[in-house]
Design a protein around this nucleic acid. Sequence first.
DNA 1: TAGGGTATAAACATCA
DNA 2: CTGATGTTTATACCCT
Length: 645
Amino acid sequence: MFQCVFSSSVLQPHRTSCLFKHLFYHSATPASQKQPEPIYSKKTEIQRQTVRALSVKLFIFSVPVSVAMMTPQVITPQQMQQILQQQVLSPQQLQVLLQQQQALMLQQQQLQEFYKKQQEQLQLQLLQQQHAGKQPKEQQQVATQQLAFQQQLLQMQQLQQQHLLSLQRQGLLTIQPGQPALPLQPLAQGMIPTELQQLWKEVTSAHTTEETTGNNHSSLDLTTTCVSSSAPSKTSLIMNPHASTNGQLSAHTPKRESLSHEEHPHSHPLYGHGVCKWPGCEAVCEDFQSFLKHLNSEHALDDRSTAQCRVQMQVVQQLELQLAKDKERLQAMMTHLHVKSTEPKTAPQPLNLVSSVTLSKSASEASPQSLPHTPTTPTAPITPVTQGPSVITTTSMHTVGPIRRRYSDKYNVPISSADIAQNQEFYKNAEVRPPFTYASLIRQAILESPEKQLTLNEIYNWFTRMFAYFRRNAATWKNAVRHNLSLHKCFVRVENVKGAVWTVDEVEFQKRRPQKISGNPSLIKNMQSSHAYCAPLNAALQASMAENSIPLYTTASMGNPTLGNLASAIREELNGAMEHTNSNESDSSPGRSPMQAVHPVHVKEEPLDPEEAEGPLSLVTTANHSPDFDHDRDYEDEPVNEDME
DNA sequence: TAGGGTATAAACATCA
DNA sequence: CTGATGTTTATACCCT
C-alpha cells in the first residue's frame, strides 16, 4: 500500500524546505553506538571544503584562470557546492596538497618580500627623481628594476600555475577548459569586499597624488583599507605582466600568455565576455585585439596600475591568509580527530571525509530500490556512486536491522546546512532514515499542508512521499506516528465534517519557549551563527564566503535550489514565527477554518515534545535545548467528551 | 546515577 | 469480523 501511495503521490516540494530547519536539532545519527567518525567527517569535511574554496578563490585572484574568465555568469551556490564537493580526497592526499600549497605560499611570500623591498626602493627612486629632476639614466634603472619585478612576478605566477595544474591533475581543482559549469570569475568578483571595490574607485581617481606624495603611505593606506585585520606590512606588489605590455616589457607577455592561454589564444584572464576584467575597469572591448589595445593603453605600467595591482595583491594575500588559517584549522582538526577516532573503535576507521554533505540524490535516484534494506543507516547515508574509492563509514550499522535509532548526536553533530538543503531531495529518494524525530516530522507534515491540518492517513502519505525510508516497515513507523500524535500535547485532534484531522498547536510552542526570539530580521544571522548545526557552515564555508562578501542568502536566492531552500526555509520559519507570535489567538491551529466545528477531542495542555518546541524561530533556543519542558504531560485522560463518533 | 526524551513494540479501545 | 484510528503502557537506549 505504501509503496503504492508513494509512487503515485504527487510531490509537494515547495513547502518541504522548512521541515529540515525545524528538525535539524533532532538531527542525529541514530546510531546506537557513539561514533566519532561522523563527527570527524562532517566537521572536517566542511573545513576541507573551506580550504578548497579558499584555494579556488585564491587561484582566482592570483592566478588567472583563463577559462574561468570566460564565463561571467553568476555562479550559483550549487555550482559552488559542485566545486566543493566534486573533489574527494583522502586525508593523505589532502595533506600532501596542503603541504604543497604551503610550500608554494612560502615561496610566494618570499617573493613578495622581495617585491616589497624592490617596490619601496623604486618608489624612493621615483621620489628622488621628482625632486632632483628626471635623469634618463635613472629612468632606465627604474625600468630595469621593473623588468626584474616582472620577471619575478612571472616566476611566481608560474609557480602558482604549476601548482594549479598539479592540483588539477590530482583532482583537487576541476577547472577544465571549456567547462562552463564552473564559472569562477563571477565568484571572484563576488568575493571582493565592497570596501575593496570602493577602494578600486578611490585608487582609480586619487592614485596619482597618493603614489607620488608618499612613498610609503599609499601602500599602507591600501593595506589598511582592504585588509582590516591582516598584516599591513605586506605592501608587496604583484604586477600583472599584462599591465606592462606597453612596449618596454612586451617581451614577457608572450611568455606568460603561453602559460595560461595556450589552448585559448584569445582568452585572457583580464578579458571576458567582451569586457575588460581589470579590476574597476569593465571597459567594453569588442574583440580580443581591441582588448589588448585597451589593456596597453589604459592599463599600462603606471602608478594607477601599480596601485591597483597592489590592491589585488592585498586581496590575494587576504585570501592566502584565510586559506592558511583554514588549513591550519583543518590540519588540527584532522590530527585531533584522527587520533581520537581511532581510539574507541575496534577497527581503524577510515576517515570519512565524504560526509553527507556530498550526498547527492543522484545516487539514490540511480537505484533507490537496489539499496540494501538499511533502515538503520541514519546519517551515514547511502553514499552516492560518485564517491568512488572514497571511504564511507557506514560502520556496520546498516546490517543491524530495524533497530531503534538513537539520536545520540542530536545536539552535537549538526548536519551541515548543505545537508539541510540536500536532505529534502535526498531523503525523498534514498532509503535513509531521516534524522528527525517523529514528532518533528509530523509537525512538519501538518504545517506544510495548506490547511495546516492533516488526517492520519495524510500524515502517513506525507511520510512516504517525503521519505523513501518510510516506505518500509509501515507498521512500525505508523504505530510510532500514532503514538506521537497521541502522546504529544502539541498535536491536537480536531473533528471536522470529514472526520478527524490533526493540527499543531503552535501556542504550545510559545509557552514552552518563551525565550524564543521574536521576529527580528537579524535573527537569521543569529540563527545561522548560533545554531549548532549551522556552526560548521559558519565556521568554514560561510566564513570563507561571507567574509568575502558572498552573501549567503543572496547567493542562495540566485537560483541554487538547495541553499535557496535553506534561505527560504529560514524565511519561512521566520514568517511562521511572527505569525505565531502574534497569533496566540488566531492560529493556534493554523488550518482551522471557521466553518469547521472544532472539537478538540483531546486537549493536551503541556507541550512535551522538545522537538515541537523548535517551532518557528526556535533555532537558537533549540540549540540550547533543555529537556525540562516535558514535565506535566498528563497521561491521565481528561474525560473531555470525546465525541469521536 | 537519575531523569528526560525518543523509538519501538504491543495491548487495548473505538468505530466504520 | 476486520482494518483504521487512537490511547496507553512498557521497555530500551541515549543524553544531560
